[in-house]
Nucleic acid binder design. Structure first.
Length: 299
RNA sequence: GGGGAGAUACCAAAGCGGUCAACUGGGGCAGACUGUAAAUCUGCUGGCGAAUGCCUUCGUAGGUUCGAAUCCUGCUCUCCCCA
């Protein structure tokens, strides 16, 4: 029986946590969380981390293990996961990775190109350039430094152009020269499972969960983190809207409404991301038995 | 009872004789995406069609006009002011 990594994907609120606990409980394996916001120890209520009970029942990795002040990325996640996987496979021939961050999960499954880290000073420089000259200025610079990438990137997306520019400058090489986009071979098999749910039902669950988060003190958690609002980790649904409320930009009701809407949109983006992955076998969120037998068939 | 304002696509709201299937915003839908991705960005949004296009819309019924969401009249409803 070869080592197997089960990957459980699905939009936020579809019920991944419950299903993952069931699967892990059934097979006696541990869970790798691939959720870019549940990584942060300062955030809790707004990220829907598994409950204390669930965490006690099944060993989870990568839940609230870094600070919002730390830099982290899909590439670091790939390395961190690959580092602990051998240990998990020694205990059990399978492990379960679940979460909502598609890019991070892809990095683990297929690899992500190694690109040197960038000096924050360089990034700051291009952020400033974007502010002063607009995206047109960024485009001109990119056309000079990396014409190949210029032809391929989304020229309307400043974030993408800035990323390319900062790599060009800090390495002295075109950003595109780092992109091999080659799928990495892993020494374990991967079985991808997706959870789906009718759109309307998912949206109702999202709306209800946001209300629950607020009852559970999301506002005061956001309030405590207000001083750190400029950090990327806090550019997150559920927090950014409350920050706008604290700053008097919107009413509290509006903030709550926006949290719901933005969560819905986030869920849609997740579904779009996974829709193109033909390896995923889709199940309804309540088809636990079907999922377990699907896994057993593929052991 | 008298006077005034208004009824526009899912919602809000422009348009006030032709270039209007109708600005814009919201909501929704679809998509892109190799670095803090719960982020960032794009397209579509009356119906049918791959498309030139065709068909049905601007409260309702008529009228004026070559031509109306835009002008006129009746009706229905909403809002405001005076009694």
């Amino acid at each position: 029986m070869k080592k197997l990594l089960i990957v459980l994907a699905g939009p936020t609120c579809v019920g991944k946590t419950d299903v993952s606990i069931s699967i892990a409980g059934h097979f006696g394996c541990e869970i790798i969380s691939a959720d870019s916001r549940q990584f942060y120890r300062e955030m809790k209520t707004g990220t829907a981390v598994p409950s204390e009970g669930q965490l006690a029942e099944i060993k989870h990795h990568f839940i609230r293990f870094i600070s919002i002040n730390q830099y982290y990325s899909a590439s670091l996640f790939e390395h961190d996961v690959l580092k602990i996987l051998p240990g998990l496979f020694r205990k059990k021939n399978l492990a379960l990775m679940t979460g909502g961050s598609g890019l991070y999960m892809n990095a683990v499954c297929s690899g992500i190109d190694d690109i040197p880290d960038v000096d924050p000073v360089i990034r700051a420089k291009y952020l400033k350039k974007n502010k002063e000259e607009g995206i047109a200025g960024l485009r001109i610079a990119l056309k000079m430094l990396d014409p190949e990438h210029y032809d391929r990137v989304d020229l309307k997306n400043p974030k993408r152009i800035i990323r390319a520019l900062e790599i060009c400058e800090s390495t002295g090489r075109p950003y595109s020269s780092f992109l091999t986009k080659q799928k990495q071979e892993r020494d374990f098999r991967i079985l991808k499972i997706g959870l789906e749910m009718p759109r309307e039902e998912l949206y109702e669950r999202i709306n209800a969960r946001v209300d629950t988060m607020i009852e559970n003190g999301l506002e005061s958690e956001a309030h405590d983190l207000f001083v750190s609002r400029h950090l990327n980790a806090l550019n997150s649904v559920g927090y950014r809207e409350f920050f706008d409320y604290f700053e008097g930009k919107i009413t509290r009701d509006k903030a709550v409404e926006l949290i719901k809407r933005n969560t819905r949109r986030y869920a849609k983006r997740q579904m779009t991301w996974w829709a193109r992955d033909r390896e995923i076998k889709w199940f309804g969120a309540d088809e636990i038995a079907g999922i377990i037998s699907y896994i057993e068939m593929n052991l």
